[in-house]
């Protein structure tokens, strides 16, 4: 992998120059809520929140949209396909390793066995530029093996103090550097040492740990554990955890109609297995009628069935669900207690 150096004094110039390519999305801080971040279109590089850790919603919102029209229909004119943002070239800038892993999982789900044309159209026009981070008490990507990225990005910036080391992940990334060659320089011996020191510091900063060895096996043994009922008693099935998760990909499809009584549009919108109607089918049968079964499903889908189906769990340890749950349900605590066979609600 090619690595070059970008001095911090030139990074804003670099960011501005990226607008030649297309829309640049960066993490910003909420003015009314310091310490709370969200991804948004960059107007000015000074808006970039370099120290951000996690945004409320992951960058999946640009690929798998919260709500989108997928086609329009008309009684006489037939139907017309719509792919929102089809022509938009976009750079997702400043993604941490967990979010890049999140997109890698979405890529598998939406683009491998079954092609989702809406996701694909946006994905192929999306450039990913990663950014290194230091974990807080809710990050557990290290336990999920998602704390580093070897692929899934075009460029990746690691903060080594005065400079960023920039890893080049794709030929498109290489072009982005080559077109701006005057901003970059060669990596020197001292930079290598700084990078190794940064890496060491980061590895030692993780405070939250989750043991995932043979977790699917344990989960299979714990199918009937009282833990799931206990959780069912505590969860509000509000769906927040699912909305904010970088790898939750479920959606509902429904039509909205127009007042002319002959036309309408089909909508694709985020859905969650926590919702009562999620597993409701025609005829009125509900496969997960019970609240506890629905909460349990979220854990089994992520840590058990995803491993069976794709070889990896679909949790990247970003800590967003821990942050978002009004009831204070903590995925690490739950899975640790499942392993220990102990769980008492408080």
């Amino acid at each position: 992998m090619k690595v070059v150096k970008l001095p911090k004094s030139k990074v804003e110039e670099f960011l501005s120059s990226l607008q030649d390519f297309g829309e640049v999305i960066i993490p910003k801080e909420k003015t009314e809520h310091p310490g709370v971040y969200y991804f948004d279109v960059m107007e000015n590089p000074s808006e970039m929140a370099w120290e951000y850790l996690r945004t409320i919603i992951p960058p999946k919102k640009y690929l798998h949209k919260p709500r989108e029209v997928i086609f329009k229909f008309h009684k006489e004119q037939g139907y017309q396909e719509v792919i929102e943002d089809k022509e938009t070239k976009r750079i997702l800038f400043g993604l941490h390793p967990c979010d890049i892993h999140g997109i890698k999982i979405l890529d598998v789900v939406f683009n491998r066995d079954y092609m989702d044309p809406y996701y694909y159209a946006r994905r192929k026009n999306t450039v990913i530029i990663g950014l290194s981070c230091l974990p807080d008490e809710k990050c557990f990507c290290k336990s999920m093996n998602t704390d580093y990225v070897e692929d899934g990005f075009d460029l990746f910036l690691s903060d080594i103090g005065e400079d960023f080391l920039v890893a080049v992940g794709t030929s498109l990334g290489d072009d982005l550097v080559a077109e701006r060659a005057h901003l970059f320089s060669e990596v020197e011996e001292e930079d290598r040492r700084k990078y190794l020191a940064f890496r060491k510091k980061r590895n030692e900063s993780f405070r939250l740990e989750l043991d995932i060895s043979d977790l699917p096996y344990i989960l299979d043994l714990e199918q009937k554990s009282p833990i799931w009922d206990e959780l069912g008693k505590r969860c509000l099935t509000c769906g927040s955890c699912s909305m904010v998760c970088p790898t939750c990909y479920c959606f509902n499809v429904y039509d909205t109609l127009n007042l002319d009584a002959k036309s309408g549009q089909r909508i694709k919108q985020w859905d969650a297995c926590l919702f009562k109607d999620y597993a409701l089918v025609a005829g009125g049968h509900n496969f997960r009628e019970n609240r506890a079964e629905r909460v349990k499903n979220r854990y089994y889908h992520k840590q058990f069935r995803m491993v069976e189906q794709y070889g990896k769990p679909s949790c990247v340890g970003c800590g967003r669900c821990i942050d978002a749950c009004p009831a204070g349900i903590d995925v690490v605590e739950v899975l640790t207690k499942v392993r220990e066979g102990s769980y008492v609600t408080h």
């Binding site: 809520h33 919603i57 919260p66 099935t237 769906g239 927040s240 909305m243 904010v244 985020w270 978002a324």
Partner: peptide, 18 residues
């Protein structure tokens, strides 16, 4: 048949409870 929270999160609001 789902709650305001889902729309709230889609709007990327901070949670009033949390």
């Amino acid at each position: 048949n789902f709650s305001v929270c889902s729309e709230c999160k889609m709007k990327e609001n901070i949670c009033q409870i949390v």
